[in-house]
Amino acid sequence: MSEGAIQRRRVSATEGILACVVLLYCVMVAAVNPAFLSVETLFDIVRSSSTAVIVGMGLLLVMLSGGIDVSFMSIALFGSYVAAYLMIRLKIDSLAFAFAVSIGLGTTLGLVNALLVNWLNLPPFIITLGTQNLFHGVMTTFISDKTFGAGVMPSVLSKFGSATLFTLKTRQGVMGLTVAVIPMCLSILLTWFIVYRTMTGRGVVAMGNSPESARRAGFNLLKLRLFTYGYIGALAAVMGVVYISQVNAVYPNKLVGNELMIIAGAVIGGVKDTGGRGKILGVILGIAIIYLLNSTLIFLGLSSSWNNFFVGTLLVASVAVTSWQNRRKNRKNLLFME
């Protein structure tokens, strides 16, 4: 019963604690190094984390459904690489084309994941670990494994990557907010709408809580899986295009391997991998904390080799606390399911 009450509250305890952690951390960094408090830093963090938030929204949906996906970075690379490759080869210079090709491919690969997860009925982690390597291998073996530098990048992508929404004049010079916040905000709004305002979204949450109950309540689990894995595929593809635009080059070996940071962000943000629990704000805050850590260690005088140490500590601490709370609650109700 109390769980229902928590669900209905807009901002629950997890998000509150996370927001406090973010604020305290910012105050601490600013106290050590006042240079941290600048519009530049803020815009920088927004720029670097925008891609993570886009795909994080897809991951939220998959994890809400009780699944997990570790192949999304592979999908992002596949979609964006092929899009850029075609644009360079066929001399097409259109942003719409890039997104269309990438999203088309991304959704298809996501659907492949969904079919495998549905058919094999084995842990989605292992299945998507397989497809992660499979997709990357197919792309590099059968399409191309060349790097395309800034010189040959389609100009529309380079422009999109450096475009700004508005600019501010500060003491350090002219600062602009990246246009990547537009796809970021769109993905957040779309995900909010799907999760809270559509039957499919409620079905995803229901499936995450109990697949069997969801099935008996009339939800088609295959369709829900196709939707969630297709959705993360599409968002990953969008993220891929934004990413290659921002770095202004296409590498055949980037992105893959970075999926753990996004998953870490979601888990720190309170998304349960057992399904049915997770909030949009939590994911955003979780990812924000990770990117904040990654980009502020320098302000604290630590080298970037400490990144993993702090992210790992945070992740382990948050996993330990939430699972212990959950266990205590379950034991009180004489539940020994885990």
């Binding site: 998953i263 993993n308 992740l315």
Partner: peptide, 15 residues
């Protein structure tokens, strides 16, 4: 602590 093995070892792997 009944943490799920995937998430727990993902965290400790990073750590």
């Amino acid at each position: 602590l009944s943490a799920s093995p995937i998430i727990a070892t993902l965290g400790t792997m990073t750590f």
